[in-house]
Design a protein around this nucleic acid. Sequence first.
DNA 1: AAGGCCATGTAAGTAGTTACATGATTGA
DNA 2: TCAATCATGTAACTACTTACATGGCCTT
Lengths: 186, 186
Amino acid sequence: MSLPHAILTALLERPSSGLELTRRFDRSIGYFWSATHQQIYRELGKLEQGGLIEAVPQPPSRGQRKEYLVLPAGRSELTRWVGQAQDPKPIRDPLLLRLRAAAVVGTEGLDVELQRHLVEHRRQLDEYLEIEQRDFPAGGGSGGRSGGGDRLHHLVLKGGIALETFWVEWLVEAIADLGGERPERS
Amino acid sequence: MSLPHAILTALLERPSSGLELTRRFDRSIGYFWSATHQQIYRELGKLEQGGLIEAVPQPPSRGQRKEYLVLPAGRSELTRWVGQAQDPKPIRDPLLLRLRAAAVVGTEGLDVELQRHLVEHRRQLDEYLEIEQRDFPAGGGSGGRSGGGDRLHHLVLKGGIALETFWVEWLVEAIADLGGERPERS
DNA sequence: AAGGCCATGTAAGTAGTTACATGATTGA
DNA sequence: TCAATCATGTAACTACTTACATGGCCTT
């Protein structure tokens, strides 16, 4: 049950309408928890019904913009969730699975896929690095200046950077390994 | 649609019954694609109906063991899937999300959670390292001896090791960072 | 008044999770 | 024959995805 809490977080950072939230889920929050507009609208409905958020009073008609803000109940629910015990989710990755399958049925077409993934992960890594340079310039230590919020944001970003770095390095090794295998067969 | 292909891979490695598959999904394959027995039985039914696998002839009654093996159609479907274009899944991690939420509502209870996750990831990392020592002793190069299958298996395992290493390192940094924040508030 | 875009939604389908049900076999 | 365990399944629910529908507003 992460989506409602992702939305609460986003709305606390800034009250928004559904469409604005959707856009913010295409970057920022969405970097580690993606969601489509359908999910978001549905969830906004549930959260409002549950009394965790509230639409700012406006004539609510169909094609009309609706802005939401978080109620105290929503904030305390989010606080509770942050400290709640949750087991780490096991890895669930189709690409690793495909390599395992390739060990049985052969690697045909796989090298192209690895290349594609490598390009994409490099792109994402660059994007993160740019954000880091923009939002957290120089200060490797982030040494105590500016509130804890920034420090946490940087920590999350560094998580993303390290993850993409892992993928890039692993893919480079995998591609080399796969390429080095061909000679056996020719 | 990864589960059917995970099952096909497992069945090609060794024909099995539903329960045996379930056990194998608790380790091995399950390290990067987990599944419960309910999912597995349902999917076995679909795969059989689709003509991708077949139950070895036995009087099929309810509590009776049923062994499956992969048909040619199943093997070629798996081959197709290995080379198929699939975009990398974006990161989707509740823990990173919780840090982001903590930047807004405070870090109460979070340090305990980070410790718990650290313990769990260290345990998983150790498990992987033991498997590596057992199945791929010494030969860092895995230099051409024994088929490509082993090489691919090792590659997948090294992926798991690198991922768990990432988590351990990131969590250590996060815990240190969070700890260093307290003084501001006392 | 027509087309494009902003904004909110509904509907249907797939995948995964949780709880429970049922039959077969074996050993005390 | 009772309990435990092996083995296969059903049912109900939640989360996510894909495709489509509807209304309002602005420009030409």
